[in-house]
Design a protein around this nucleic acid. Structure first.
Lengths: 216, 216
DNA sequence: AACCCTTTGAGAGTTACTTTCATTTGACGC
DNA sequence: GCGTCAAATGAAAGTAACTCTCAAAGGGTT
């Protein structure tokens, strides 16, 4: 009879539930304190105290202070969506769809903390550094999918430039969105951005000036 | 008689000379130790000892350990060259020239340490984070020049995307160059990269596939 | 030589981690 | 229910990157 195992699956066992609970408690406390006093001004001990756990436990759940903020990984989502796109679709279009899709996921799963999180992402050097790493990882994934589809080696310069350009442009778009008070429709901004890339960085105000590839 | 002041200018005074000397001694010691034992495995105290200064002095010269590696700023150079380009030249072309020029400067001024430095730049998270910040600053400068020339506001999304794309692509190019053992001609790689951007991320292997701007 | 101002070094303190080890507490077979 | 095992926790000591303060040393100037 699978009743017990089904129950365990739903309830995940008391241990697992407590772990999730603790994790949330720590993050919650941290967010509150970060918002009140700022990131640097908030020592781990204080977070631990408010979350009612020991400092060691905080470090056990989050190897570094930044990890409390840098929570979720988009990468697996991106890769999955990306591989699910039809193989004959143009790669840049696939990436567009995959990233927009994972963005939707994110926007829904994040609660009210999203504003605070994006601000920390922008303002705290340590967090930004980690963000850059994450972006590089995403870039590597996108590149490997591109490599599969084109048959090029995945350390090809062209692929690297294309993949990193797209990720960078979308990152810049998010920062623009944050800087302007998150009033715009992020998805629409992203489409605009990708169109700029695809068109070849042609400045709309300067489209009269010819742009030719470099001649040696 | 301007002899004294001229002498001072050349000699910079004993005090200034000593400062420069100390700075170099610290950096030199640090580079040696980083190369031998790695960045993380090298405490400041050890660097101080080898440089024959006190640990406090190290912190006085370099506010953070990363700063020992992240020395020079390209930004002023870039901005100067950029503003010196003819006003009617296409911005992307100006940027191309400015960045290639400042690259030349850099390649000459850096001695043997350039290989180690680029590796640290790639491998040490803290340093990469700082690098990302520096890139953002460069991007801001490029953007402001673009804004002047086009008359657009300098927080325009299009300008942000264009400026950051160019910087990001060149950064990716340098990383490619490092990853492949610095055998290629970096300047040529950069031209190739910029051409990819200008052409609009058209994958050469897929140029048969049409790429159209997004339709809502 | 005497005075001033800057640089330096010494030392104490803070904070983010790391490691170790003993204690607690779910999980599971019986 | 109950004992046993493994995992989660907490306490404590240690390391390393900074920060701050203050007194000593050393250039610069007259």
């Amino acid at each position: 009879m699978p009743l017990l195992s089904a129950e365990r699956e739903r309830k995940l066992g008391l241990r697992e539930r407590k772990k999730i609970q603790t994790r949330q408690a720590i993050r919650h406390a941290a967010y509150r304190l970060f918002a009140e006093q700022g990131y640097d001004a908030t020592p781990i001990d204080q977070i631990a105290e408010m979350a009612e756990v020991s400092p060691s436990t905080v470090f056990r759940y989050f190897p570094a202070k930044e990890d409390i903020v840098l929570t979720d990984e988009y990468d697996p989502v991106i890769e999955e969506v990306l591989r699910d796109r039809p193989a004959d679709e143009h790669p840049v279009e696939s990436i567009r769809q995959a990233l927009v899709a994972s963005l939707h996921d994110l926007a829904r799963s994040e609660g009210d903390d999203i504003a605070l999180r994006t601000k920390l992402l922008r303002d705290v050097p340590a967090i930004r550094g980690r963000m850059a790493e994450a972006q590089e990882e995403s870039s590597r994934i996108v590149r490997s999918v591109l490599a599969e589809r084109t048959g090029k080696p995945d350390d090809d310069l062209e692929l690297r430039v294309i993949a990193s350009s797209i990720l960078n442009a979308l990152h810049e778009t998010i920062m623009y969105w944050v800087d302007t008070g998150q009033n715009d429709d992020l998805e629409q901004l992203m489409h605009t951005t990708l169109d700029i890339l695809i068109r070849g960085l042609t400045l709309s105000a300067l489209s009269d000036t010819a742009l030719k590839p470099h001649q040696q």
